[in-house]
Simulated scan of single mutants.
Amino acid sequence: MANIIGSPERYVQGRGVLGELCKHIQSMGKTPFILVSESGKGRVEKPISKGAVEFDTKLTYATFRGECSRNEIDRLIKAYKESACDVIVGIGGGKIHDTAKAVAFYAGAPVVIVPTIAGTDAPCSALSVIYSDEGVFEEYLFLPRNPNMVLVDTDIISKAPARLLVSGMGDALATYFEARACKQSDSGNFIGGQYTVTSMAIAKLCYDTLISDGVKALVSVREGVCTKALEHIVEANTYLSGIGFESCGIAAAHAIHNGLTAIPETHHYYHGEKVAFGTLTQLVLENSDLKELEEVMNFCLDTGLPTTLADLGITEIKPNELMQAAELACGPNDTMGNMPFAVTPQMVYDSMIAADALGRHYKSKR
């Protein structure tokens, strides 16, 4: 199997770059179909419109209805084809990005991803995570190519709620540990190959950047300012994590996230928040070195990421419900099989209970 690394054709990050959107899409199209939430449109319309005047660009907006589901994708494919636009732009969070990528794939259109938060590593990947209309994980849609462009305006991200940045750090936190597991098991990545030296280095750099700059970036975004530390974390959450997970692979942490989506109490929590608890559970599952486990636990506590099931809304542990989540995490269509040893639902259940107990233990010492 070949060693393959994937990435977007171009990654643009900086203060105020949203105003340059129409300039940057000129090589792809002249009439963008902009997918954005109703509330998000009010925040991005003004800077985009200024660039549209300069480049004589007709803008068409479509409202995202909240879930990356098959029904939503089909609705937007129809709307795109009726619009006579020639490039799709997804502006917002991870589910908008995944929906825009899926619509572009089925419609045969180029796609530009514009995160307004650094809340997931979805922007750079050739992957869409499909959920039911009710928000329960259904499947991964593997795409033949990465987005044509990812454009990240750090001025906008610095004004977003701090919890969203933290959620992005939770998603990015899994990148290195899952990459390491895939390397140990010699598993394939998301693009039909195996990790490269570069992709493993990117995954490790992602983790190192979180540890060195995560707390500083959180302080910056709480104050609504854009510092060098925040720029580094935005890049880690968006680019390093995106390239790292896709080109190395994922394992237990994301599979556990997917299992947890079946528990209704977790639906109000962000993807990265559930992935962070999944990462702690994976470390327990691996019987990770205590020093490593404590570093990850303390990072979660310092940034406010979940370390217990109660932090995800599961205040009453129902064994049957948690076992169902463990069984889903070990399903044949998920990524638990990328672990370097055989994993059973009982092992996942036990590790979630143990991770929860460790989280309560370390919290009590604060």
Rank of each mutant, 00 (worst) to 15 (best):
Ile5Val: 14
Glu9Ile: 10
Tyr11Ile: 14
Ile25Ala: 03
Gln26Asp: 09
Gln26Glu: 13
Ser27Ile: 11
Gly29Lys: 08
Lys30Ser: 13
Lys30Glu: 15
Val36Arg: 01
Ser37Phe: 07
Glu38Ala: 07
Ser39Gln: 14
Lys46Asn: 13
Lys46Ala: 15
Asp56Leu: 10
Asp56Glu: 13
Ala62Asn: 08
Ser69Glu: 14
Arg70Asn: 15
Asp74Glu: 15
Leu76His: 06
Lys78Leu: 15
Ala79Asn: 04
Glu82His: 05
Glu82Leu: 10
Ser83Gly: 03
Ala84Glu: 15
Cys85Gly: 09
Gly92Met: 06
Lys95Thr: 13
Lys95Ala: 11
Ile96Met: 10
Thr99Ser: 09
Ala100His: 07
Phe105Pro: 00
Ala107His: 05
Ala109Lys: 03
Ile113Cys: 00
Val114Thr: 03
Pro115Val: 09
Thr116Ile: 11
Cys124Arg: 04
Ala126Lys: 01
Ala126Val: 03
Tyr131Thr: 10
Tyr131Arg: 01
Tyr131Ala: 07
Asp133Pro: 00
Glu134Ala: 11
Val136Cys: 04
Tyr140Val: 12
Val152His: 09
Thr154Gly: 04
Thr154Gln: 04
Ile156Ala: 04
Ser158Glu: 11
Gly170Ser: 06
Ala172Phe: 11
Thr175Gln: 04
Ala179Pro: 02
Ala181Met: 14
Lys183Met: 13
Lys183Arg: 14
Ser185Cys: 08
Met200Gln: 14
Ala203Lys: 05
Tyr207Trp: 14
Asp208Ala: 09
Leu210Met: 12
Asp213Lys: 05
Asp213Phe: 14
Ser220Cys: 04
Glu223Asn: 12
Glu235Pro: 01
Ser241Tyr: 08
Gly244Ser: 10
Phe245Asp: 04
Cys248Tyr: 02
Gly249Gln: 09
His268Ile: 09
His268Gly: 07
Gly272Ser: 00
Glu273Arg: 02
Val275Lys: 01
Gly278Gln: 08
Thr279Pro: 00
Leu280Val: 08
Glu286Ser: 01
Glu286Pro: 01
Asp289Met: 02
Leu290Ser: 12
Lys291Tyr: 09
Glu294Phe: 05
Glu295Trp: 03
Val296Tyr: 11
Val296Lys: 02
Asn298Tyr: 09
Thr303His: 07
Thr303Ile: 11
Thr307Lys: 01
Asp311Val: 07
Asp311Ser: 02
Leu312Tyr: 14
Thr315Met: 10
Ile317Met: 05
Lys318Asp: 15
Ala326Ile: 10
Leu328Glu: 11
Cys330Glu: 05
Pro332Ser: 11
Asp334Ser: 04
Thr335Met: 12
Met336Gln: 03
Met339Val: 12
Pro340Tyr: 09
Val343Thr: 07
Gln346Asn: 06
Asp350Ser: 06
Met352Thr: 06
Ala354Trp: 12
Ala357Phe: 08
